[in-house]
């Protein structure tokens, strides 16, 4: 059992907005900052574009955790897209919790284009956290 848990490597989908967080992920790369290979970034134009359907589909397709990243409040390229994002993520987390899925499997973070280090740190933290939680029950 313990051994199994140790050998578990989570799959994580990171949705990144084009203007801030994807640039942040890119910078992490150029800065040669290591972040876990478990994290697969997917670029979208705005975090506000990340429909809860995308999140659910990621879980259904086998993601153990989903990271939603966008610009800091006030920095959104489309003014306020990230406010909608946070509202949706909160409601979705509460729904996941209600149906017995750990809400921690879904996380929202604001990462600026200059915050390559933050991206790497969040990726590490989140991967560790999901590794501890084990495989998602939604893997199907």
């Amino acid at each position: 059992m313990t051994q199994k848990e140790e050998s578990f490597e989570p799959k994580i989908i990171a949705f990144c907005c084009n203007w801030c967080s994807y640039a942040g992920a890119d910078l992490a790369g150029s800065m040669r900052l290591k972040y876990p290979p478990n994290v697969l970034p997917i670029r979208v134009m705005c975090s506000g574009r990340i429909s809860p359907h995308f999140v659910m589909k990621a879980f259904q397709k086998g993601a153990d955790g989903v990271l939603v990243t966008g610009c800091h409040y006030g920095d959104c390229h489309y003014m306020k897209g990230n406010y909608i994002t946070m509202r949706r993520v909160t409601i979705l987390k509460d729904l996941l919790k209600f149906v017995g899925v750990e809400p921690k499997r879904l996380r929202a973070e604001w990462i600026a284009g200059s915050e390559g280090d933050k991206f790497a740190r969040v990726a590490h933290e989140f991967t560790d956290e999901i590794r501890n939680l084990g495989p998602s029950p939604l893997r199907g």
Partner: peptide, 17 residues
């Protein structure tokens, strides 16, 4: 969830995980 509303900067209260 669909409309920003007049208080466009409203953010949700924090969730207990």
């Amino acid at each position: 969830l669909e409309f920003l509303g007049s208080e466009g900067y409203m953010v949700p209260s924090k969730i207990d995980e």
